[in-house]
């Protein structure tokens, strides 16, 4: 085998580590993307019996954004198995207890339900903030594109930017600005 062919072979079967910044991202849409990489379906060599999934490192999972009123309306169900053991936890309560849990549970539910599921979950590394141990960060070689733009707050613009921005209407002549 030629030198180029050998490198191609390594690159094909090498494991990639992707970084994903979950800041202001919808966890349910992001999970669709992360699931594909954990299973390896984005690769041409994918096969059901082929273990070719890549690692995903998710940062800032505490700053995920949910649409509309989903923080209050989405409910996570758990049953202990005993009588009266049912419990319902709202999304914001779950996020308050563990800021990585919503993303982890979403990816887990989107993975195919077979014996490979737990092994694929082991390739997912979620961190609530942007502090990653060096042992993980040194493997990262690529980044996943964010699905939503991060909105900029009004108080993060400079005073000049706000004042110089084109105006849509002018106040009436006798209007006292508050």
């Amino acid at each position: 085998m030629s030198a180029v062919g050998r490198v191609q072979q390594w690159a094909t079967f090498g494991r990639m580590w992707y970084l994903f910044d979950a800041k202001w991202q919808n966890p349910f849409h992001s999970a669709d993307k992360i699931k594909d990489i954990l299973t390896g379906t984005h690769k041409p060599i994918y096969h059901d019996l082929n273990d070719c999934g890549d690692h995903v490192v998710v940062i800032n999972s505490s700053e995920i954004a949910l649409p509309g009123v989903e923080w209050e309306k989405r409910v996570y169900f758990h049953h202990t198995g005993y009588a009266k053991g049912a419990s319902w936890t709202l999304a914001w309560q779950l996020h308050h207890k563990d800021p990585t849990m919503i993303l982890r549970k979403t990816v887990y539910s989107k993975l195919s339900k077979n014996l490979l599921r737990r092994g694929r979950m082991e390739k997912l590394h979620i961190f609530p903030d942007d502090k990653i141990p060096d042992s993980i960060l040194e493997n990262v070689s690529a980044q996943l594109r964010q699905m939503r733009p991060i909105p900029k707050r009004l108080d993060h613009y400079t005073r000049e930017e706000v004042e110089k921005f084109p105006k849509v209407f002018d106040w009436p002549k006798d209007y006292i600005i508050k």
């Binding site: 989903e70 923080w71 999304a91 914001w92």
Partner: peptide, 9 residues
Amino acid sequence: SKKYNRYFD
């Protein structure tokens, strides 16, 4: 829940 990020459609 108001302290967490949310967006609208």
